[in-house]
Amino acid sequence: MQGPLASLKVLDFSTLLPGPFASLLLADMGAEVLRIESPTRQDLLRVLPPHDQGISASHAYLNRNKRSLALDLKQPEALEVVTQLLGDYDILLEQFRPGVMERLGLGYEALKVINPRLIYVSITGYGQTGPYKDRAGHDINYLALAGLASHTGRADSGPVPLGIQAADIAGGSLHGVIGLLAAVIARQQSGQGQHLDVSMTDCVFSLNAMAGAGYLACGVEPGWENQMLNGGSFYDYYRTCDGRWMSVGSLEPAFMRALCEALGRPELAAQGLSPKPEQQHALKQALQAEFEKHDFAELCRLFAGIDACVEPVLSLEEAVRHPQSQARERVTQVPRGDGSTQTQMACPLKFSEGLPEPRHMGARLGAHTDQVLGALGFSDERIAQLRSAKVVL
């Protein structure tokens, strides 16, 4: 089984999280992904803990199914290698700051002359233009500047650091893949490639889907705990008597009635329909008092058979063991290369024709250098010369 993207061949110059998560999705769906890695400047993801048998678990996951070519892009001979690769690989993914690839002789304008069908995807924090284009940043900064942190948090304590990298993944990775595949479809019609400029801040700004629409059209500025879905209503998390948490999303009247009846307080259901902040505040207090009368296990049993949009807040261990997770096969076994496997998160996309089985974990640096160069027609002697000159590893 090859997968729906088996016809795509991608050169991946990215490191850390946004680009690698994007190319992981592509590789899982069958694309051939070749990582171009620096032999002198290590991808910090390779050393990020925790480690499994001396290998970063994050790197092993994010770079599975990809090959690795260790190539020093600062060496003039590196351009020769990339130029030859472009005859076969017609999609390029990079994550450097604007101007870096141009200085290396690998900018879009230079490379599209070699291959006019080239689709060139640049993922950066702030984009290729604007006063912040050269500014350093991380996920928390992109969320702050996109306005998202201003209404995600608690009124008495402010914004809350998320447990995931929303700007990196939802902003950079997912939008990057969407744009890349759109460019592939456009190329099928025109025969021409193009440059895709993905700003993680731009993309995460668009995730202000309802709050942003309300502000731009109506001037309603969202704040902490003053919107229906950010803690300003009963839609929230509730502590149990043993210090665990339950999520309540009983927005529709039928679900609210089911919630209140299960807790033995059917009279509270009418308050759930009120838009008045004071009514919502009183309802939240009443619901919290009821949840605190029960322990976590009791509440899980209580709501397991009730369709009320009430679910337990699970640890990762519990989430993996959950029957829905088991049924959906969210976890897979990935070959290490020594006959054993590592447990990893599976590709979440389900195709009726299926996907190829995972081929291998993230490869060691330069694991496929000889294989790739040999396929390009480089002789053993020439490969040895490049290695001696430290162009490749």
Rank of each mutant, 00 (worst) to 15 (best):
L393A: 09
N63I: 08
L106H: 02
A308T: 01
S56K: 03
Q371T: 15
R187C: 08
H368N: 13
G212P: 05
G305S: 03
G147P: 02
P76L: 12
V372S: 00
E317Q: 11
V81L: 09
Q385E: 15
Y61I: 08
L302W: 01
E32Y: 10
D197A: 11
I306F: 01
D156W: 11
G191C: 06
H360V: 06
P358C: 07
N226Q: 11
E329W: 02
L314F: 05
P20T: 12
L118E: 06
A254Q: 14
F234Q: 00
R257N: 12
L393E: 04
T129D: 10
V82G: 03
L16K: 00
M210L: 15
L174Y: 14
G232V: 01
A213V: 15
L92T: 08
L93Q: 13
L5M: 10
V121H: 04
P50L: 10
R382T: 13
I383V: 14
E80F: 06
G19M: 04
E318I: 07
Q279M: 03
L11K: 07
E317S: 12
T129K: 08
G3E: 01
R321E: 13
V220I: 12
A327R: 09
A213C: 10
A270L: 05
D134P: 05
S38Y: 11
G193H: 03
G130R: 04
L104T: 08
F351I: 12
F255L: 11
R336Y: 07
L349C: 10
Q42T: 15
M210T: 14
Y61R: 00
